[in-house]
Amino acid sequence: MFEAVLLTVITAATPLLIAAIGELVVERSGVLNLGVEGMMIMGAVVGFAVANQTGSGTLGVLAAIVAGMGMALIFGFLVLSLVTNQVATGLALTILGLGVSGMIGEAYIGVPGLRLPELYIPVLSELPLIGPVFFQQDAVVYLGFALVALVAFVLFRTRTGLILRAVGDNHGSAHALGYSVIKVRYLAVLFGGGCAGLAGAYMSLAYTPQWVENMTAGRGWIALALVVFASWLPFRVIAGAYLFGAVTVLTFHAQAQGIGVPSQLLSSLPYIATIAVLVLISANRRLTLVNTPACLGKPFVPDR
């Protein structure tokens, strides 16, 4: 029982983790992409469709990453090249993603899906209790943790990360130093799109291996909240994602047990928890002010 719960927490947390770590990089570069939900749902439908057509989960995942990046490129073009309002453009991306995914997905409703195979890490996977939980997962779970570690390393230990943070904190100075603010932001936005696409594919190929319309059900938005929760620090994203994964899974189990609470109340818990967590974090001004990228959401037009 305990093992089973832990396993489902991991699968519930992984898409949040991956989408949030992607958005964290985007926001560190000073761009607020509210279209995570749209990119994620596109990843979910494209991943499912390609895996279904080719019979290969790997191809599905790759196609989903490309789909997420494609969506991100549209967003980047508008926000970075045409200096449109970032909030409105992100919303447009979500509306478009939900519509397009609904159209593509219509052919796949009720079609049995493909599940990503689990990787058994030799020796470690045979450990009692922790073996099956931590070392018998599909590749994307490991990839998620690797991504967090990679982002943390690049952001705070490399020159690339320094440039990215400089662009996000003071685009005027970064530009004056000769860095291309727009190019750095394009790359960050594309990375975020790829992550959101991957997170979407995980939804439709591992979490619930099928296509259901609107199946991301606000997870893209929760990922955005997780970035605030993590106060833009990569490793805290893991804690946030697992907290939310646990809340989601607990509501499932509580529903299955049939405790005397309406199922709708339980289903609304992750959303209410998100609001509660956002309030707790943002009430702490010092924590948020120190880490919030100073140029977050501000447009940049190089003047010369």
């Binding site: 938005w221 909240a225 609304s268 959303y271 956002l278 309030v279 943002s282 009430a283 948020t288």
Partner: peptide, 15 residues
């Protein structure tokens, strides 16, 4: 509390 109104107003849609 200085909470981001974009995210909270959207979460309340689901609720």
């Amino acid at each position: 509390f200085n909470t981001n109104e974009i995210l909270t107003s959207l979460m309340l849609v689901y609720v």
